[in-house]
Design a protein around this nucleic acid. Structure first.
Lengths: 217, 217
DNA sequence: AGGCTAGTGACAGTCGCTGACAATTGACAA
DNA sequence: TTGTCAATTGTCAGCGACTGTCACTAGCCT
């Protein structure tokens, strides 16, 4: 295993430059307010080259997100078998938040990533793609969970259902974090824990008589 | 309240024609394989007119879906207050499936609608839009649920969480229905009931020891 | 050193979509 | 009925995302 040649390194640099410049322009002028021509001009490559690295203008906005997702999947694969499905997913998210910082910084500043995440949530075209990508992730996760629990994904609907419910909560978490004040990694971590704690009680037959909040006496 | 004038009726006819022709072409040649020019040529209007009725090529694919959603929301609003959140949503879906047929047929044949639904599930660009629309629906539903239960949507996360979990299951239902054999209204109804029954058990801490399926002894 | 090929740029063209303005047609009052 | 007004439509020009093609440049390998 030899280190990559000049050609390969050059490609990586171009790709990272495209991502960085794109995210900077997107967060500064908005996604729709930025043209591909502006991105490629700043990086000094042709438009054709941009579309060789990214199949669409949208895709470049998710390049970092992609890394984060791969990290989560790897983390989930390493959860101890004793944990139930929901706990495994919960702990996998939380533990991947912990070590995400450094991995991202290799490509773009963390602050830029967080702003990009909010941009995605608030830009309809990007939100749509984000949600589609999420469902693809759900399928991946469902297969891992099914494997862990020793059931057949296609015969037993529980893996997909559990994952769908979990992902739904994670999505609400991201949404609320984007709208809130504190836009730090710690804040999203705390919200994640809080909202996941609410999942089971929220599905209880009735809320009215007692406020069945997890941290209520 | 007088019946609509000629102008209004003409507009409605144009709109319906555009929807019908669009869905027929989409299901026949695929979404990307159909151009807006082909649609407008078949209906004999200018492209500009198409975009006055629909803000995008995607939107026309969801025109019927829109009706179905409005129906669900109305149905949810009429559920008896005694029903818990999850039951109210469940019954609202099921009861709106019952009367959906006639409402759709006024615009397009039911078969065409069902095929369109599958097209949406299998076309990435449409699926993305579908999911974004779904989250908008979720917000609407969450507010209704919060109102029913007498809580504040922004202070109490349970409405959004319950709705997110519910919607996640509904999405999986649609997906599985699209992939399965029996593509009838009855089939999707049955699947809906089955999958919703699985929701609570799927979130239980462990599945392994006993198959905690609702219909198992 | 020199041939090979992956990667790039330049160019032309398609398609979705929009603004501007002119032409048409239903609505409604004189 | 007819003339005026306003709503609807068509035409045209143009932008931006994206793709196929082909020539060319630059790293790679013998």
């Amino acid at each position: 295993m030899t280190l990559p040649g000049l050609r390969e390194r050059k490609k990586q640099r171009t790709r990272n430059a495209l991502i960085r410049v794109a995210l900077e322009l997107f967060t500064a002028r908005g996604y729709e307010g930025t043209t591909v021509d502006e991105i490629v001009e700043a990086v000094e490559v042709s438009q054709r080259t941009f579309f060789r690295y990214f199949s669409s203008k949208e895709e470049v906005a998710f390049a970092v997100q992609q890394m984060v997702e791969e990290r989560f999947v790897r983390s989930l694969g390493q959860r101890p078998p004793a944990e139930g499905p929901l706990d495994a997913m919960r702990n996998a998210v939380l533990s991947s938040w912990d070590t995400i910082g450094e991995a991202i910084t290799a490509v773009v500043p963390v602050g830029l990533y967080l702003r990009t995440f909010q941009l995605i949530e608030s830009t309809p075209a990007l939100l749509a793609v984000h949600l589609r990508r999420s469902t693809e992730m759900e399928e991946t996760i469902a297969r891992i969970i099914a494997e862990r629990e020793g059931v057949d994904v296609d015969a037993d609907p529980r893996p997909r259902i559990a994952v769908a419910a979990f992902s739904g909560v994670m999505r609400v978490t991201g949404q609320m974090w984007g709208r809130g004040e504190d836009q730090s990694l710690e804040a999203i971590r705390a919200l994640t824990e809080e909202y996941l704690d609410h999942l089971a009680p929220a599905l209880a037959p009735h809320w009215r008589d007692r406020r069945a909040l997890p941290d209520a006496p």
